[in-house]
Amino acid sequence: MADSSETRVARATKPVSEALLNEKWDRAISSMIIKSSLGLSFGVVFSVLLFKRRAWPAWVGLGFGAGRAWEESDASFRRGDSPVRDALRR
């Protein structure tokens, strides 16, 4: 992210080519955190409401969230040089 501040060129439209992978990594990690936490929270709520405070619904929710994040980031890495496009952000 330090590169973008230094080079004024192509800052607005797309990141500099060497920062492409870094950005993808940033996106992947953030989405992993967010989605897994969302899934965990859903799982906790379900466990409290339906499953008499059992632990496994929380784990399942976390797994769902993490898996979703993994899949998205994987897809974004596979897509090559096209900049990251998140379903949530855009």
């Binding site: 590169d3 920062a19 992978l21 870094n22 993808k24 992947a28 993994w70 980031s73 890495f77 596979r78």
Partner: peptide, 21 residues
């Protein structure tokens, strides 16, 4: 700078996923 980044991605196969990255 570019070289360091390129080195990171130097071992990537074609159509690599997050794990290979």
């Amino acid at each position: 700078r570019v070289a360091s980044e390129v080195r990171k991605a130097s071992l990537l196969p074609e159509d690599a996923g997050i794990a290979s990255h």
